[in-house]
Design a protein around this nucleic acid. Structure first.
Lengths: 219, 219, 219, 219
DNA sequence: TATGAATGAGTGTTCATTCAT
DNA sequence: GATGAATGAACACTCATTCAT
């Protein structure tokens, strides 16, 4: 697909190739997927076009050929992950299960994403700093209606006394903090605590059950 | 004085000017302190020499004059903050108070740092990504002997049953997560939750007590 | 048919399609004619292959397919217009009418061309600059034998006293100047004089008669 | 002078060096003056930064160093010439001499500019075409109040019968056409008429008196 | 102690052109 | 007859850094 001033972010090839189990991926998809890895798995947020191309095993100019600009590639990659995440989370929010099960699913779902793209959250923060400095920003966090519903559920649980009463957002912040932070900063704390990768992973494994306990016991 | 941070992190001028109440700070200190703000308070991690100089109110070339390179300035600024933090934390670790008081002081001390330099942790993570890619990295986390002692204290408390038993590092991770994460991602969650800055700060205020409760109640 | 303008300027298809009243024009002719409009009517002399293709409503690569290179397309388009013009002018020069009638026809014929391709002359000038810098140039003005005859006629008329005596080339230059310049620079002077397009066209309309008067009155 | 986001077009050095008869010109002035020559004397309107730098005998990056962008250099060069021209023309418009003398001065003044910068007018037209295509444009022709006064003078002269009555703008257009066109297209017509440069210049010399005659004789 | 001038490596991007199909 | 993919040369521009003063 060649760009001649079109403005839509997703390309035809793009959409078509989603879900294909074929081993042969188009160059376009190849670049995009490898860019996701480079940006959000390896955390090389300032990767140059050359680095992106090298990493995807293609010529530098193909990045521009398929995505018009480095920034647009970043946006496409970012938004695709955001959409995947939103979809998964919303599915949990509206699922017809008990509050406790919902939280459990939420933990699982969030952990999975954090482990898949450990630097994704960092990107959000970098973007936030850009926004705060009135620079161009890709990220547009929008309050989700599903989330609003879930917050009301939290309030009800607090009223029922199954979870520690406080501002319901604090319940969510605790949830997110306890999951994300130790994953994101794994390389830092592994060193500070003098652990190997495997040892740290052991610690992380314990956490899933621990987090549930923390969130649900009335303090 | 020429070239700070070549071998030692602190320069002569630097040490001399620390703690001085004089309004006249040397150009060198001026640049360094403003760089800290730009990097770790505002989160402009990719600030150019021009931006740094503008922000410090000095000519661009003075950045190179005093710090030889942009990267070295970053290293000096970073390591100074790290040292301040380590000193403060070690002080807590070895202080002669009850475990509970120690934790309380730890919470206070960590919160203070996070609020002072909200983007400091982000920088750590970016550095981690550099390390992982075998690029030059400034960050060199070293296991602290004081911390090792404190971890043993945690184990004892777990044995005594005052806190939830698990890997003692998980106690620390919980502590750090619950403090840092909501502060670092404030701009993101303020938008996601549809809150103003002030409303979010209200939520944050509740947390100090909440965190203590979470850490200490046996679950 | 492949590659127009390699040796001859006109291609087979080209010649065949000239004067055909058929609505179906070959892609090749389509590209060439639209390029003429883009270059010499709209003045987009730096139009890219993409722009040319978009304007002609064809795929980008067809420009190269039919004309080998963008420059060759330009040459073909240019030379076709030049030939049309030369043919028309030569017809006037050799026509069997009075000098005054010839001049009148010349004015009409030149005006028509200038109004049809207002940016044609600009292109000539740009080409001149290329030539002066020893760069590749498309334009190859050749002295016309018909024109030489007409210049002798001018000299005779000057001798007869019907027109102001001077170097006969000045008569031609006056003729061309008075016609071309105000048309070519219409957009500039419309703004400088604070006129609408329509008002300027009114002024232009007056000129045809005015020019004849200027050229013929003995001063 | 180094650009760090300043927005004014003229630099200090720039203003200071005007009128200096010193042989030592600053690199900045050197670049600007040579750019004027390249753009408006040689007509290389699409000169790249490399060409500009080569022509000025400096390194390529100095163009950006002193003028931030190629476009800005072009704007500075353009506007400087425009200002010089406007000043000279306005001086003629308001000078306290007879109408005939004014026209004579106008002819001299315009000829001088055309001969100095033969491609300046072409640049205007290219700019116009950019404007018409809604591209970025440097040129901003503004109706001059002095010109408006002069147009009223023309009307008076027409009423008095000293010049051929018609729309007064046609008097101006004739004036400009007869001067500019033969100069601008000199290289074209020299070839078409089979003349050497010197022969064409001879023809041009005749024109000054000729133009005055044409403009003033009642037809 | 400080600075203006200069430089070179690198960065994103554009675009005409080629080529296999 | 036509096209999508790919490519390389060129482009304007940025920026940390050096150096003479």
């Amino acid at each position: 697909m060649y760009f001649s001033g079109t403005e839509n972010t997703y390309t035809f090839v793009d959409i078509m190739s989603n879900g294909l189990s074929s081993d042969v991926v188009s160059t376009e998809v190849q670049i995009k997927e490898q860019a996701k890895v480079l940006f959000f798995v390896r955390g090389n947020m300032t990767a140059t076009c050359q680095e992106i191309a090298d990493f995807a095993g293609v010529k530098r100019t193909l990045v521009n050929y398929y995505f018009r600009s480095r920034e647009n590639l970043l946006r496409v990659a970012y938004q695709e992950i955001v959409c995947d995440m939103k979809r998964a989370l919303d599915e949990v929010y509206i699922s017809d299960v008990s509050f406790e099960d919902k939280v459990e699913r939420l933990i699982g779902c969030t952990m999975e994403f954090r482990l898949k793209y450990p630097f994704f959250e960092i990107f959000n923060i970098s973007e936030i700093s850009n926004k705060m400095q009135n620079k161009a920003s890709i990220m547009q966090p929008v309050p989700s209606p599903r989330l609003a519903c879930f917050i009301r559920e939290i309030e009800q649980e607090m009223a029922r006394g199954t979870i520690q009463p406080s501002n319901p957002h604090n319940f969510l912040l605790n949830l997110m903090s306890l999951i994300s932070y130790p994953i994101t900063l794994k390389p830092l704390y592994a060193e500070v605590y003098g652990m190997t990768d495997e040892e740290y992973d052991e610690v992380l494994k314990e956490r899933k059950a621990l987090i549930k306990k923390i969130l649900f016991k009335k303090l």
